[in-house]
């Protein structure tokens, strides 16, 4: 405790710190709170600023209207479909990335084959080719492969990730040789070693990566914008963008606010509920 008194903040310093943190938290949370509150007010109230800072009485009505076809009328596709699409894309990217990067890291660390390091570099260099720098040619490849407006088209180009492969490679290299040797003495092949030893040891890394990649998938924008023409294949983020028109006097803003809440809530819940793995994963694995 003496140590704490010496370098820790004084009582007044701690109170000031709390005040700053509360202010910071309020400012950071406000945009999300604002849209959540807006989603519980009538269209008339939303259009007459300033918006009340407490939730209004229209919550049930707005959400009911939005979920029972309201969003479908303004977005051209039902909200269930939007949430389904976004979930498929986010899960597909997260699970797909984890599987293919674990497989390739496993090959690179636990096997010897010709061109092994060349393959490693080939994967590593993709780090320097984000989709933004090769938009048009990648789009052409999608057209040639008939992947426009398909889940495969939304997911596949985003699941090759050098970062995840590097992470697993780094982790696999810390596995002691003795473990593998013991497993082989017991007659375990590559699959059993992977399933019984490596997979359980990787559980924390997988959980951490899953949160980060799920968020990555859910929040994609440029790619879904390019490879979907049909409203049916929109993700909720793209659909929301299409609903917003400030020039159009008839935009049903109360329904737009409900859509925004539905687009924000799932990833925020995942980050908050899986916070422990998320923070560990982000700070420790990030390159």
């Amino acid at each position: 405790m003496a140590e704490h008194d010496m370098v820790g903040a004084s009582r007044s310093g701690r109170i000031a710190a709390h005040l700053f943190l509360i202010l910071g938290a309020v400012v950071v949370a406000f945009p999300i709170y604002y849209v959540a509150v807006a989603s519980t007010h009538s269209l008339q109230t939303i259009l007459r600023p300033p918006l009340p800072l407490i939730p209004g009485p229209e919550a049930y009505q707005n959400y009911h209207e939005a979920l029972a076809g309201g969003i479908g009328r303004i977005g051209g596709v039902s909200v269930d479909r939007l949430l389904l699409n976004t979930t498929i894309v986010a899960l597909g990217i997260a699970v797909g990335k984890i599987i293919i990067s674990m497989a390739s890291a496993y090959a690179i660390v636990f096997f010897r084959f010709p061109l092994r390091m060349a393959m490693f570099w080939l994967i590593f260099i993709t780090l320097m080719l984000p989709v933004e720098v090769r938009i048009l040619p990648t789009y052409k490849v999608m057209v040639q492969l008939h992947l426009i407006d398909t889940y495969a088209g939304l997911i596949l180009p985003l699941i090759a990730s050098a970062t995840a492969t590097l992470l697993f490679r780094q982790f696999f290299m810390t596995i002691p040789n003795e473990l593998l040797e013991a497993a082989r003495v017991d007659g375990a092949g590559p699959w059993r070693f992977f399933r019984d030893i490596l997979l359980p040891l990787s559980a924390t890394n997988i959980a951490a990566l899953f949160v980060i990649l799920f968020i990555y998938g859910w929040t994609q924008y440029l790619w879904p914008l390019l490879v979907t023409n049909s409203n049916e294949m929109n993700t909720i983020v793209i659909a929301l963008r299409k609903m917003i028109s400030f020039a159009d006097a008839d935009t049903p803003w109360h329904l737009v606010m409900v859509t925004a809440v539905l687009a924000i809530l799932p990833p925020v819940l995942i980050v908050v509920l899986m916070q422990r793995w998320f923070v560990k994963g982000l700070v420790e694995t990030e390159k």
Partner: peptide, 27 residues
């Protein structure tokens, strides 16, 4: 509370700020 924005898509982050600051009804 401070990690919330991480989970918000950049495009939606932009829209949230536009909701608050749009000239026609932003509070």
């Amino acid at each position: 509370v401070l990690i919330w924005p991480y989970a918000v898509a950049p495009a939606i982050a932009g829209m949230l700020w536009l909701f608050m600051f749009n000239p026609s009804f932003g509070s």
